[in-house]
Design a protein around this nucleic acid. Structure first.
Lengths: 350, 350
DNA sequence: AGTTACATTTGGATCGTTCCAAATCTGCAT
DNA sequence: ATGCAGATTTGGAACGATCCAAATGTAACT
């Protein structure tokens, strides 16, 4: 039957051209859907493409055209559901635009971030979407990627002074407003003794959320008790362990604004262990609206950030940037929405 | 001062060569750390590389060398924490070996899987790690990737008869043994009326787990009640909704082996809504040992699959395959470990 | 001086594509 | 026949690296 080429060697434009007694150039035109080629030859070529099982070599094309069809996505923590959904959103939007996602995980290590960035750079992505590791700083990032690559910062700010050469885009959540909304909501429910629980003070998102908390408290004329500003790692486990710190003093708070959902769920656990029922004896709020938030016991009042949509938005911003490289850099703030559920009960009658 | 090149154009080997009055070839040797080049010229070149801010163009090199330094990772559902951790593991191991991860998400759609696979293929990955979408089948996958690309199937089997051309590797969890262990554990605790809850019957992992359940029940001489084989989507929400089905008949089970952790957590929710306390009035087990399992209320007895390690293992298997392309294909079964926690209580005294 | 051995460097072809200017082919009016 | 316009097709030089065989330089040995 049909004589396939010797097999086991990748089929190229030349093979196709030879197969139809045409030149490389014509076949290339067909591939790119040029209107120049004759209808009949086009179909002839298309048949041959299928027959030989041709697959386009985008790397070669990109080399010649000095273009790129990939975008690097560098994340501090893929295991966190928030970033996982974000990544899914990024990939979805990029794929729809014909781009491919180069993934890199840094595991919160600034040095691995360096390594990952420079490794990815060698593959020549058109741009980079970066959610920085905790102690990452602007100079190092600039050194790794150079001044040429478009960069979109997501979710966190970079430590250190940004060199003025680097004008980077940014997509951030409205952390301050979110925490303010949560705090106002608890105040409205009747709470007066409110804690801020979880997160690291050197994380930019944490200090923004804390600022929103303080803003709401002060606006309501309520005291911000230093003993009730509890730091912990943004994980369930550590949050559960730190619960005791809330009740160390004489007076205890009746509610807490938590750094994020993971921390809030951990705090629930810690409360239960102390015989306190979250959502009845103690009110609390989260941040992120991860999938578990709605299904917790009780369901968690939190701020919805729609990570999947943020991912798509990040991809869109990057695509715009690629389309208009000269536009001045933009800082985008994504809105968050307060989702009220059962965890934010009124204070117990006393 | 140093005269940087005209800026804004990527610096290439030629620029470096010109900068040191050497040939491209020598500079290339330096880049690859060849022992051929003179110590002194090497350092001279290295200085120039730094001075001009050279970044290696791996695409060009791969074109010439007919090699590839990327691997495609195609997942049915990145938002699922199990796959997210898996992906993090894959990326970590690949990065350590100097490879880069091309990400693709299919969202459980076989047609998007087709599109994603062929798009990624054009970027010429050295291999593909695929966790198939639910109704994906072998012929379509083969049509998309051709017989040349090494493929590692993870976690699920492909529907349809596998064409004999395609000899693919596989990494699967020991589903059957895991479910058998869980069932045996419940039997040992004293349960006799045990349900199998959740999952879709057309999912290969679900039918394997169910087989393990049946195996243990029959070995213990216990009846497998058809009314207690409840199907539902592998999500918390659907599991909660389907809880009622367990208690529809006259006699109700005292325990359930759940398809996975998400289902088990959903079932807990459903039990609570009916006034039953999971881990006191009803025993249950999960599968996967996701992060929430240990922190549930009560903590969930489950089968640990160590998704991060599975990811690293998948990457290793792929790297081995690349190293020895001619080796016959392998089916690897990853062990699972029963982790006993409070959810698997004895049946209530009666 | 001539030969050999070794260390180092290099020109040019090549990978699979795209670009460009030029070549070829048609039909049709002159 | 000749010229011309429009429609198609094409050769060869890129892109940025690597490979290979051959060139060059240097020192040592007859």
């Amino acid at each position: 039957m049909s004589s396939h080429p010797p097999t086991h060697r990748k089929v190229t434009l030349n093979d196709i051209a030879a197969g139809c007694a045409l030149s490389r150039a014509t076949v290339s035109l067909v591939l790119r859907g040029s209107p120049l080629v004759n209808r009949e030859t086009r179909t002839r070529v298309e048949q041959e493409l299928r027959r030989q099982g041709y697959v386009y070599n985008r790397a070669a094309a990109n080399l010649r055209r000095r273009t790129s069809t990939s975008i690097a996505l560098v994340l501090n923590d893929l295991a966190n559901p928030f970033f996982a959904e974000f990544a899914a959103g990024v990939d979805e939007a990029l794929a729809a635009a014909g781009y491919v996602t180069l993934l890199g995980c840094t595991g919160e290590s600034a040095s691995r971030e360096q390594a990952v960035l420079s490794s990815l750079l060698e593959h020549g992505p058109a741009g980079i979407i970066l959610s920085p590791a905790e102690h990452s700083n602007a100079q190092d990032v600039l050194a790794a990627i150079g001044p040429l690559s478009p960069l979109l910062l997501f979710n966190r700010e970079l430590g250190g002074a940004a060199p003025d050469i680097a004008r980077w885009d940014q997509l951030a959540l409205d952390n301050q407003r979110g925490a303010r909304l949560a705090t106002e909501h608890l105040i409205e429910r009747g709470h007066r003794r409110i804690a801020f629980f979880g997160g690291h003070h050197d994380s930019s998102s944490c200090s923004q959320r804390r600022a929103g908390f303080v803003e709401a408290m002060q606006a309501a004329g309520l005291p911000v008790e230093p003993a009730w500003q509890i730091e912990c790692a943004p994980t369930r486990l550590d949050a559960a362990h730190r619960t005791a710190a809330l009740f160390a003093g004489d007076a205890a708070p009746t509610a807490a604004v938590c750094y994020n959902d993971a921390v809030a769920l951990g705090l629930m656990l810690g409360l239960n262990q102390r015989g306190l029922r979250p959502g009845r004896d103690f009110a609390l709020t989260g941040f992120d609206d991860i999938a578990e938030a709605a299904l917790g016991m009780p369901p968690l009042t939190t701020l919805s950030t729609a990570p999947h949509e943020r991912g798509m938005q990040a991809a869109q911003l990057m695509l715009q940037r690629l389309h208009e490289p000269r536009t001045p850099n933009r800082q985008t703030v994504a809105p968050v929405k307060l989702v009220i559920r059962a965890s934010s009960c009124p204070p117990p009658a006393f």
